[in-house]
């Protein structure tokens, strides 16, 4: 185990080199990810956006080490990823807090198991983090007793206490109502701007993507690869007003057009006709 790295200064570059993954038997293989190459730059917030069902979660599983690529390499700071580890923390789509542990027990779970630090140290940091995510009063509640937004914040705290090199967020705000979602986005962007930890954020919402991202990666349809990388140069700290600027509008238009093309391609392939092309001719790419 590496010596503890001070948060905010940790350099972490994640490289995906020609990664491919397919499922199924030899005679009916489905290629989910093909020849995927991307460098997730250190201390930046990289957002992956793609049509739903395009294999984003498969990608997350590969990076997290739950799954292995058929070919290609995944390197974190030059070292190949071979399995799950606390240098890459995943915040899951639906909450994965252990329902049988209180909020505080959930947060201290990882560090206490590994026993790299003293319990007093862990408890102190847990309290600080819970305070920070606004759950100090809820630390002895069970996850089921928290609202959706609180659960996501608890999960953020559970990830952050491990000082990961990179945070991987797999559509973390999915399933929240519009209001909580907006609040969580604002909260999350503040958190990121505080220490600029390398972050890979996966979403299917374009506005969310533009609001958060330093770099926006638009994914192609299945088999998934990188369609285009757009650098988002909106100033930081971000706030929601920026989304109505012309600059943001341009990003949005560009991303929408790319995604629309990709979605259309899959629709046509699925329905086996060019029907949607005719419809798209009029109203597409708004």
């Amino acid at each position: 185990m590496n010596a503890e790295v001070k948060s905010g200064q940790n350099q972490a570059t994640l490289e995906l080199q020609n990664v491919s993954r397919s499922y199924g038997d030899e005679w009916s293989q489905e290629h989910i990810i093909a020849d995927f190459s991307l460098t997730v730059e250190s201390n930046k917030l990289t957002v992956l956006v793609g049509p739903s069902g395009c294999g984003k979660s498969t990608l997350v599983n590969l990076i997290a080490g739950f799954d292995k690529p058929d070919s290609g390499k995944i390197l974190l700071n030059g070292k190949q990823v071979t399995g799950p580890g606390q240098d890459r923390m995943v915040v899951f789509q639906e909450t994965a807090l252990m329902p049988w542990q209180t909020t505080r027990q959930n947060v201290v779970f990882g560090p206490k198991l590994r026993g790299e630090r003293s319990d007093a140290d862990i408890d102190a940091e847990a309290n600080r983090l819970l305070d920070k995510v606004g759950l100090a009063e809820f630390k002895d509640k069970y996850p089921i007793q928290l609202s959706g937004g609180m659960q996501r914040r608890a999960e953020l705290a559970r990830a952050m206490i491990n000082h990961p090199l990179i945070m991987i967020m797999d559509e973390p705000f999915r399933g929240l109502d519009a209001m909580s979602r907006e609040l969580m986005q604002e909260f999350f962007v503040r958190l990121y701007e505080e220490n600029r930890r390398t972050n890979l954020f996966v979403t299917s919402e374009i506005e969310e993507a533009i609001f958060l991202a330093d770099r926006l990666v638009v994914l192609s349809n299945r088999p998934t690869s990188v369609r285009k990388v757009i650098d988002i140069t909106l100033p930081r700290p971000r706030d929601f007003h920026m989304l109505s600027s012309t600059e943001a509008y341009e990003y949005k238009r560009e991303a929408m057009e790319l995604l629309h093309e990709e979605a259309m391609r899959s629709f046509n392939r699925a329905s086996g006709s060019g029907l949607m092309d005719a419809i798209a001719g009029g109203g597409g790419g708004d």
Binding site: P84, V90, A96, W100, F109, G110, L113, R114
Partner: peptide, 26 residues
């Protein structure tokens, strides 16, 4: 749910930790 196993492994749990903290309570 598979997610709990994944979360535990991600947090650095060894198989016996998974057994104690995920399999039994779950």
């Amino acid at each position: 749910d598979e997610e709990y196993f994944r979360a535990a492994r991600c947090l650095g749990a060894k198989p016996h930790h998974v057994f104690m903290h995920v399999v039994i309570p779950g």
